[in-house]
Computed example of a mutant assay.
Amino acid sequence: MTDSPKGRARSADKRRRLTTAAARVLHEQGVERTTLADIANAAGVPVGNVYYYFRTKDDLVLAALAEHSAHLGDLTDALDRLPDPRDRLKGLVEGWIEQRETAARHGCPTGTLAVELDKRADGVLDAQAGAVVRRLLDWAAQQFRALGLADADDLAVTLVSSYQGMSVLTNALRDPGIMAREGARLLRWLDSLPAPGRAG
């Protein structure tokens, strides 16, 4: 019975498995090619149970975007424990470089979803994807401001657009070396920025 503590725990576990699977499968296959059965199979949940938790595929896409946002939050929370904002930014780039094989196969999880969802007419899901990207931009801008740089918002756009560009090329050419090389270039760029107190 779902009203018991064990039943509620099982229900929460199924929902969580479906959300995690949705984020992974939608990244790997894209929205249009993914069926509810694909996500159910990846989650190890009977396909009929999916409708108990998510009425439509769009609901699962929203759940996947929430998963990406939560993952980003966990990542930035971990990076925020580093005392130096430059090290936080470099840690972000190093994480991108570590994901180069995944990027070569599937691209950026949020970026590829944002591009695909933008083609749809409703404008709801793509706005949610944009919100995840905005969250990353805002966090990066905070780090540049902490370095005392006046153009922090522009620098955040430079950083994130560089990532999206190298992610697209890495995926299009199936070449993880692009992510490694361009990531190393971003690390050198971050090292070249003025230290706190010396920004002009």
Rank of each mutant, 00 (worst) to 15 (best):
M1A: 13
S4F: 05
S4E: 12
D13C: 07
K14Q: 12
R16Q: 15
T19K: 02
L26G: 06
E28A: 14
I39H: 00
N41F: 11
A42S: 10
A43T: 04
G44L: 14
V45P: 02
V45C: 12
V45R: 11
P46F: 13
P46L: 14
V50F: 00
Y51N: 07
T56W: 05
T56L: 10
K57F: 06
D59E: 14
L60F: 08
L62W: 04
A64G: 13
A66E: 13
H68D: 12
H68V: 00
H71Q: 15
H71E: 13
G73I: 09
T76W: 12
T76F: 11
D77C: 06
L79F: 06
D80P: 02
L82M: 14
D87M: 02
G91V: 05
V93R: 02
I97K: 03
R100Y: 03
T102L: 14
R105Y: 07
R105V: 07
G111R: 00
L113D: 07
V115S: 05
R120Y: 14
A121I: 10
G130C: 05
V132Q: 05
V132D: 04
V132E: 07
L136R: 06
D138T: 15
A140R: 00
Q143Y: 01
F144L: 06
R145W: 10
L147I: 12
L147G: 02
A150H: 09
A156R: 02
A156F: 00
V157W: 01
L159R: 01
T170C: 13
A172P: 01
L173Y: 14
R174Y: 06
P176G: 01
G177D: 13
G177W: 05
I178S: 01
I178T: 12
M179F: 04
A180C: 07
A180F: 04
E182Y: 04
E182F: 02
R185S: 14
L186H: 01
R188S: 15
L190E: 09
S192R: 09
S192L: 11
G197L: 02
G197K: 10
R198I: 03
G200F: 06
G200I: 09
